[in-house]
């Protein structure tokens, strides 16, 4: 049996956050809450990326200061790849929110409600 160390606590936070979000997205009946849950799940994963690219101590952002030797820079800067994934996922998340918001507004226009229990034209 492995015991989590202090350095692994952020992972546990991500695990709990992701589970709550997946639960809410699957079982909540309010469409807007479902959307928020999905968006928070994206953020939980973004947090996971940031944790995995973080460097303890005197770390600097992944921008090389003028005159610094690249090998020194590589040993103190944080992981740019993890940051890249987060930047990309944030933009994609925005597109998701725009799409789902437009659809939810139209659903409200047609049905007068955004509770999935009351939207029952189709049988599923």
């Amino acid at each position: 049996m492995m015991i989590a160390t202090a350095g692994q606590l952020p992972y546990i936070l991500v695990a709990i956050m992701a589970s709550i979000c997946i639960y809410a997205a699957l079982f909540k009946s309010n469409l807007f809450k479902k959307m928020l849950a999905i968006f928070l799940l994206t953020d939980a994963v973004n947090l996971l990326f940031i944790i995995q690219g973080y460097r303890l101590g005197n770390s600097i952002p992944p921008i090389i200061p003028p005159g610094m030797d690249p090998s020194d820079f590589a040993s103190i800067a944080v992981d740019p790849l993890a940051h890249y994934f987060v930047v990309t996922a944030v933009v994609i998340g925005l597109a998701e929110v725009a799409t789902l918001t437009a659809l939810i507004i139209y659903t409200y226009k047609h049905y007068g409600t955004i509770e999935t229990k009351k939207i029952k034209e189709l049988r599923g």
């Binding site: 350095g7 952020p10 690219g53």
Partner: peptide
Amino acid sequence: LGFVRPLGEFYLF
């Protein structure tokens, strides 16, 4: 926490 993977260091370098 605090482990940077070699691919990230490749990009930095």
